[in-house]
C-alpha cells in the first residue's frame, strides 16, 4: 500500500555521479573518514600487493553494499552487525580462494590481510552509513566509489614507498645503475612499517593544504 511516487532516476544522474566521485577526494575513506587504515598501511611496501588489495576491497565493498541494500528492510536492527559480518565474511572467503588460485605469490604476501578485509572499517562503515538506508544501485556506486578512493590512496603510498625503498615500480627497476655507482642508496626505512604512517601523514597534510575546509579545529 505504498503511496510513494517512484521517480525514475537516470542511472548516472548528477547525484549518482557524486556518489562515485566524492570518495575520491572530499570524503576520501582513508584521509577524511579515517576508515580502513589497518590494511592501507600494511600492504603498501610494494605496488603489486597494493593494487590487488585495492581491487579486492573495491569488489567486496560494492557487492556487500548491494546485498545488504537488498536485505535492508528484512534485517532486524538488533542483529544487523552479525548479518553484515556474515555477508562480508562470505564474500571475503570467495576473494581469498580466487587469490589463492590465480595469484598465489601475492596472496602469500598479503597473508592475514586478506582475511582482515572482513573487519576493514570501510566496508562496515559504508554498510552502516549508506547501504542500510539506500537503494541497491546508489549503494553499488557508493561501494565502488569508496573502494576506488581507498585504492587511490593505497596506490599513492605504495608508489612512493616502492620507488624510494626499493628503487623500482611494480617490480621494474627505475633508478639507473649509474646512480648507485655514484653512491645513491635505497632508503631501507621506507620499506619498514613506521614510514607508511608518516607517508599517510604527509598525504593528509598536502590534501588539507589544498582543501582548507577539511582542516580540524583542534
Amino acid at each position: 500500500m505504498s503511496t510513494e511516487i517512484r521517480e525514475r532516476e537516470a542511472l548516472f544522474s548528477s547525484k549518482n555521479i557524486k556518489l562515485l566521485k566524492n570518495p575520491l577526494s572530499l570524503s576520501n575513506p582513508i584521509t577524511v573518514q579515517v576508515l580502513g587504515i589497518c590494511s592501507a598501511l600494511a600492504v603498501t611496501a610494494k605496488l603489486e600487493p597494493a593494487i590487488v588489495m585495492a581491487i579486492s576491497v573495491t569488489l567486496v565493498t560494492a557487492v556487500s553494499n548491494v546485498v545488504i541494500s537488498f536485505l535492508r528492510n528484512g534485517i532486524p536492527p538488533r542483529i544487523r552487525i552479525i548479518v553484515q559480518l556474515v555477508v562480508v565474511a562470505t564474500l571475503v572467503i570467495v576473494v581469498d580462494q580466487i587469490l589463492k588460485a590465480f595469484v598465489y605469490d601475492v596472496s602469500k604476501q598479503l597473508s592475514v590481510f586478506v582475511g582482515l578485509i572482513i573487519t576493514n572499517c570501510i566496508i562496515m562503515g559504508r554498510l552502516e552509513a549508506f547501504a542500510m538506508a539506500n537503494k541497491p544501485w546508489p549503494s553499488f556506486l557508493d561501494g565502488i566509489g569508496n573502494g576506488l578512493g581507498y585504492g587511490l590512496i593505497l596506490i599513492i603510498i605504495a608508489f612512493f614507498r616502492e620507488l624510494l625503498g626499493s628503487g623500482s615500480i611494480y617490480g621494474f627497476h627505475l633508478i639507473p645503475e649509474s646512480f648507485y655507482e655514484l653512491g645513491y642508496k635505497n632508503n631501507g626505512l621506507m620499506i619498514l612499517p613506521p614510514m607508511a604512517l608518516i607517508v599517510v601523514g604527509v598525504i593528509i597534510w598536502v590534501q588539507r593544504y589544498y582543501t582548507r575546509d577539511l582542516i580540524e579545529k583542534n
Binding site: L197, G201, Y209
Partner: peptide, 16 residues
C-alpha cells in the same frame, strides 16, 4: 593542515 589526524599519524610513525 596537519592538525588532528595528520600529526597523529606522524607521531605514531615516530613511536613505531
Amino acid at each position: 593542515p596537519l592538525r588532528g589526524l595528520g600529526i597523529t599519524f606522524i607521531i605514531t610513525g615516530l613511536m613505531g
